[in-house]
Amino acid sequence: MNITAVAVNVLASAALIFAFTRSREKSIKALAAAGKMFISLLPMLIIIILLIGLLFVLVPQETLERFLGEQAGIFGVLSAAIVGSILHIPALLSFPLAASLLEKGASVTVVAAFLTTLTMIGMVTLPLEIKELGKKFALMRNGLSFIAAIIIALLLGALI
């Protein structure tokens, strides 16, 4: 248990108690929504945890460092950003995966690029974005987000 975990649990408990004093009915609905989110995340959660385990036992540290570590250079950052743009992993579950990559020797820049494109860019949702907001808007937003993700990643790598 570390301080963040304690803080989140205290915050959630306090919010839940406060919510119950405001509206019992809505609070029960909120708990049901949380349960539903958990059930929909569960398969992916199990997969991610298994993948982290496999990453630790199957991928040698040197191999990971060569492709995703400092020595991978801009190539590593770009490939992480591209993989992040294509994959569709819920952000909540991407953090433990990112942490395991860092622990195994991936660079901060690579991990930040992956996390940022993962959430900012949606290949899966692109058709819907085009339909609602137009091709120009959607392509510009996603394209600029890719560049932004690289900038964010480089800044983070330089500062951490």
């Binding site: 963040t4 649990n9 959630a12 408990s13 919010a15 809505k26 609905k29 909120a30 929504a33 958990f38």
Partner: peptide, 19 residues
């Protein structure tokens, strides 16, 4: 680590979604 943090985070999200 997920078990410790995920339920609380989902409850917070559920509350914000409903309220």
């Amino acid at each position: 680590e997920m078990a410790v943090i995920l339920p609380a985070v989902l409850i917070l999200m559920g509350l914000l979604t409903v309220f």
